[in-house]
Amino acid sequence: MENNAFYVALSLLMNLDAALFQIVALSLQVSLLAVLAAALLGFPLGAAVALWRFPGRGGVIVALNALMGLPPVVAGLTVYLLLSRAGPLGEWGLLFTPTAMVIAQFVLVLPILAALSRQKVEELLGEYREQFISLGMSRSRMMPTLLWDARFTLLTVLLAGFGRASAEVGAVMMVGGNIDGVTRVMTTAIVLETSKGDLPLALGLGIVLLTLVMLINAGAYVVSELAKRRVG
């Protein structure tokens, strides 16, 4: 019975295990902060690429699309090099802190949010363009209108970004270091327990992680469906 993953998962939750709670809280905190920061930059960036015509625009779109598949370890390595003692931002002393993990996930999620929002905003612009020009709107005035009117599709984009952030292990492992009580998150804990051979605990953690992601997605789905029904 003690070797059953579901039993382990359940007992971890039932006992409100303090260590587990800390790991879960840090996982959510890091991923949510990274996604929020990436949205603040990525959505306007995506909308700007959709709105303005400039030399090299095609290249930017291809780069954003390609970077959606950026391997987490490559993002991790880049941030590691930037933040390591000898790196350009070494003085900040951020390596192996939760902040470094947020930065690494931000790098991973930004292209996803920018590339997908570019696509969604461009579709909406196709529908609105003549009306916008008729109203005499400048491109910079169109941006907030488009972002607001695309809010439900952008929520889905946000979830895609959150999924990417909460699921990856390579980047947070490299720049966080999986330090117990400081930078250990769900995914790095799963890797550790697996390599230690405690498979039920690893699986139990996996189930907790999946359940959390599921709950967040279900919440967002319900909110967007209700809103869509009202707004049409």
Partner: peptide, 25 residues
Amino acid sequence: AMVFQNPVLLRRSAVANLTHALAVN
């Protein structure tokens, strides 16, 4: 101003569509 064959309306309430146009102006 122009009124199109298929009206292009924002994904907001009727009154918000008008206040948006006023804000733009």
